[in-house]
């Protein structure tokens, strides 16, 4: 960087007049003045209202999309399940539950514990949002 130019810019940044009155100083003064002027990039008069309108309409569109994909997901899952059953000759067998019968206490504890974690998660998340 050129020290003379740097000094000119620094003085103008600090709102001081440049010591020099040459063409460089005059030109910099003009540049600083013009750069501070509003370039006139106007948004439409009802810009804020349009954005708020989009926010208010968004959940409905999003909900419809969510329902569509939820339905499509179930449909393709069912098709995949039926296809798998047909091609593999799968037969339903609940024999594995006999093994679990000895550990029913653990299974109940697992379900209660997962439920508790979910409750705690929602509680903490909500209080954090309110704090913000």
């Amino acid at each position: 960087m050129n020290l003379f130019e740097e000094e000119l810019q620094r003085r103008l940044e600090n709102g001081q007049n440049p010591k020099d009155d040459g063409l460089d100083a005059k030109a910099y003064q003009e540049v600083f003045r013009i750069l501070g002027k509003d370039p006139g990039y106007e948004l439409s008069a009802r810009f804020a209202e349009t954005v708020v309108g989009k926010v208010l309409n968004k959940p409905q569109t999003r909900l419809a999309n969510d329902y569509f994909w939820f339905g499509a997901g179930i449909f393709f899952l069912a098709v995949a399940f039926l296809g798998t059953v047909m091609f593999t000759g799968f037969r339903l067998d609940f024999g594995f539950l006999n093994v679990m019968a000895d550990y029913w206490g653990l299974a109940v504890f697992g379900m209660v514990f997962i439920g508790f974690l979910n409750w705690l998660d929602k509680k903490l998340l909500k209080s954090r949002q309110v704090q913000h």
Partner: peptide
């Protein structure tokens, strides 16, 4: 910032000159 202002200054200087 320095370079941008410097470029503009050079053009303004030509105009003022």
């Amino acid at each position: 910032l320095f370079r941008a202002r410097n470029l503009l200054k050079e053009k303004v200087k030509m105009y003022l000159g």
